Structure formats: structure tokens, C-alpha cells
Amino acid sequence: MASSDLELLCSHVNEKTGNIKKTLSLRNCGQEPTLKTVLNKIGDEITVANELLNKLELEIQQQEQTNNSLKELCESLEDYKDIEHLKENIPSHLPQVRVTQRWVKGSDLDSEEPNKAVEPGPIKKFPKEQRSIKELPFITSDEFNGVPSYMKSRLTYGQINDSIKEINKAVISKYKILYQRKKSMNFVARNLYHRFINEETKDTKGRYFIMEADIKEFMTLKVDRKFLVILSILRHCQRLSEVGGGGLTPYVITGVLVSF
């Protein structure tokens, strides 16, 4: 055996012997009354320290969870900043909404119910039997902002354009009946047809218009004070105009001509 190995072995034996001596010494100290009280206090302190360490570990776990939640919140705030940037940089001018036009086949007018609107579809060629139905254009955000506050009341931009959708449905339903062949009309459609013809005047000839009775017939909206305010806004935005005087008032779609 080399001398270095022998020295390591002696050192290890001496270390173990020293630990045994310390253990025996501590055991003997624990038997003395004065030292036993001190050892009990040390044990109590160790127990308290252990409880504090457990609480500290729980607190660290909670802090880690809070930190993870804050990271997720920061990530979501980045998206919110983008939204705020878009909100603060809305273009001052939005493109005008173009007047749309729908083409209805004569055969479709005969086959469908008189009070249903014609659904738009891609048409490459226009058949010989056809009628054009043009719609009321939506108002733009600039136009809505230009409406006086006292006139808008609590109405929103979306509510105005939703009403325009309903008015367009009424216009389409009305003129589908007017374009329909009489021999294919049922009793209800025939009565409506005659009413539409009787409501025609020299002021409305060649123009799209609806009456209050058409609104009640084809629309789900109620003709109440709120709807009358919407009509006032549409007149202000030059979407509708009233012609004639006294009795029944036609609401003409401004700038849109009937194509026969």
C-alpha cells in the first residue's frame, strides 16, 4: 500500500473517531439538567424555523403564480395597445358606400312569395326579362358625425344602418310585387299591387318610394317615435325625401331612379 493511501485511510479513521467523540459528548451534555433546558429551547427554535421555512415556500409558490399571471396580462396588453392605436388613428375620411343594385329575373318574381326580399347572387348575363332594384345606400361615419346631437338623441351609427337594411327589404318586397305578372299573383299580392298603383302620383312616378303602410307590411321595425327620428336623420343625410303634401306621405329614396 502506498504511503498516500495510508495517510488518507488514517485521516478518514480519525474523522470518524472525532465524530463519535462529539456524539458521545453531546449525549452526555443532554443528561445534565442545565444543558437539557438549553437543548429543548434549541429544539423549539428549530421547529419554529421549520414552520417559517414552510410558509416561505408557500409564499414563493404564490409569487411565482402571480408573476406568471402578470406576464400573461402584459402579453394581452400588447394587443390592447394595438387596438388603442387603431382607435386613435381612425382615418378622418372613409370611402363613400356605393349604391348597390340587384337584378331580379321575371321568373323569380312569379315563383317567390311577394313579401320576401330577393337574395343577391352572381349574375354574368342579364336575361331579357329582368327588372333592376336599387337599394338605399348606407350612411358613412362622417355623415353620422355630421348629424346634430339633438337629432341623433341616443341612436348609434349601427342602429341607423340596421334601419336602412330593413327599409331596403321593404323596397325590394314592394317592387317585386309591382314587377310580378298579374296572372301569377295570389289574392294578397293582387291587393297590395292595386294599393301600390293607387299610391302613385306625378311626384313619385319613375322613383322608388315607400309609404308608412309598406313599412308596417314588410318591416319588423315599429313605426314609433324612435323610427320617426331615424327617418329624420335619413332625410338630413339625403337618403330619403318626402314629396306631396297632406294625407299619406311617400318616402322617396333620393337620387335613385326606377329602371323599367
Results as ranks from 00 to 15, higher is better:
Arg131Leu: 02
Leu231Pro: 01
Asn115Ala: 06
Asn67Met: 13
Leu56Gln: 05
Arg225Trp: 00
Tyr80Thr: 13
Glu57Pro: 00
Val104Thr: 06
Glu7Asn: 06
Ile233Glu: 00
Lys128Asn: 10
Gln61Lys: 13
Ala170Arg: 02
Glu166Gly: 08
Glu45Cys: 11
Ile46Gln: 13
Ser69Trp: 05
Cys10Gln: 12
Ile46Tyr: 04
Ser259Tyr: 06
Phe144Gln: 03
Leu234His: 00
Glu7Arg: 07
Pro122Gly: 10
Ser11Trp: 04
Leu26Glu: 04
Glu64Asp: 08
Arg190Glu: 11
Leu228Lys: 14
Glu112Ser: 12
Thr254Tyr: 01
Ala189Ser: 14
Glu166Arg: 10
His236Trp: 07
Cys29Ser: 15
Leu136Cys: 05
Gly30Arg: 09
Asp44Gln: 09
Arg235Met: 15
Glu200Cys: 11
Ser11Tyr: 05
Ser76Ile: 10
Gly106His: 07
Asp224Lys: 04
Glu199His: 12
Ala213Thr: 15
Val48Ala: 13
Ile60Tyr: 05
Lys16Val: 15
Ile20Trp: 07
Leu9Arg: 05
Pro122Thr: 15
Thr140Glu: 02
Thr66Gly: 12
Thr66Arg: 14
Phe144Thr: 02
Phe218Ile: 11
Gly244Cys: 00
Lys16Gln: 15
Met151Lys: 14
Leu94Tyr: 10
Gln101Trp: 06
Asn145Arg: 13
Pro33Ala: 06
Ile133Ser: 08
Cys74Lys: 09
Lys152Asn: 03
Leu136Ser: 03
Thr156Ile: 01
Ile123Trp: 02
Cys10Asp: 07
Gly106Cys: 08
Arg154Leu: 04
Ile210Cys: 01
Cys74His: 09
Lys202Glu: 15
Glu59Lys: 09
Val48Arg: 08
Gly206Arg: 04
Arg181Thr: 14
Ala189Glu: 04
His12Lys: 07
Met185Leu: 04
Leu228Asn: 13
Gly245Arg: 12
Val256Leu: 03
Thr37Leu: 12
Leu231Gly: 02
Ile46Glu: 07
Tyr157Ile: 00
Leu6Phe: 02
Ile46Thr: 09
Leu6Met: 07
Ala213Pro: 00
Gly30Glu: 13
Val188Asp: 11
Pro137Glu: 06
Glu75Ser: 11
Gln180Val: 06
Pro114Ala: 11
Ser153Lys: 11
Cys74Thr: 08
Lys128Pro: 01
Val171Ser: 02
Lys222Asn: 13
Val258Tyr: 04
Lys183Met: 10
Asn198Ala: 15
Lys22Ser: 10
Cys29Glu: 15
Arg225Gln: 10
Asn168Ile: 01
Ile160Pro: 00
Met185Cys: 04
Ile60Trp: 03
Lys134Cys: 12
